[in-house]
């Protein structure tokens, strides 16, 4: 079954729940190499985004825009503009389509990732959100090419994001506050890559189950 605006809203709620549940974990990861506010900030932004979802039967682009604006205005720090731009650009890419197939979901994530990179100027391997998002996008695109069903495609994307997240541990951070640690940033999993994995995992758990 294709992804509808209602599925997108379920995805955002699942993402928000996951961040709320893992807030302490994100804080711990961020305290090790950042300033410890990633879980707190993202939770604040997402709670506001979820409140904004309750008012109705928005279509795909307006759902994405409302989430983007909530994250931009309520999150703060670096994660507000980064996740805000993800949803803003992802929303523009899916446009007026009523629903999304595997290729559409891949486009959504590709556009969101491009937005994150435009805003944050991070390259793969810099120990950032990009390191979890890029493998997921590539897995989705490959699945679309191979004609895989949505749940299978998302299962692959989730696994790829998880691998990407774990692979940030040995990396030296080159962007954001963690970069000031230099060598000392090695040996810690990146909090941004971790929340980005939750974003992909939430999509797999919600879009996957609608099939």
């Amino acid at each position: 079954m294709p992804v509808t605006a209602a599925d997108l809203r379920a995805w955002i709620r699942a993402f928000a729940n996951q961040v709320a549940e893992e807030r302490a974990h994100l804080t711990k990861l961020d305290s090790a190499i950042g300033d410890g506010d990633h879980g707190q900030n993202l939770n604040r932004g997402l709670s506001h985004a979820v409140d904004g979802l309750d008012n109705g039967n928005d279509d795909l682009p307006s759902t994405m825009k409302s989430v983007a604006m909530s994250l931009i205005s309520k999150t703060g720090g670096a994660s507000g503009p980064l996740y805000g731009t993800f949803f803003m650009d992802a929303g523009k890419a899916v446009g007026e389509r009523p629903e999304l197939d595997v290729a559409g979901v891949a486009e959504l994530f590709r556009a969101g990732l491009a937005g994150v990179q435009r805003r944050g100027k991070a390259e793969p391997g810099d120990k950032t959100m990009v390191d979890a998002l890029l493998p997921a996008v590539e897995a989705l695109e490959e699945a679309a090419e191979n004609g895989e069903a949505l749940p299978t495609a998302l299962t692959h994307a989730k696994a790829a994001a998880e691998d990407g997240m774990k692979a940030t541990t040995p990396l030296q951070a080159r962007k954001g506050r963690a970069s000031y640690l230099g060598e000392r940033s090695k040996g810690h999993q990146d909090p941004g890559a971790t929340s980005s994995y939750y974003l992909v995992a939430a999509a797999a758990d919600t879009f996957g189950s609608s099939a």
Partner: peptide, 11 residues
Amino acid sequence: PGEVFTSPTPD
């Protein structure tokens, strides 16, 4: 002013 040690937001 943002939250403590957190950037303010564009709005």
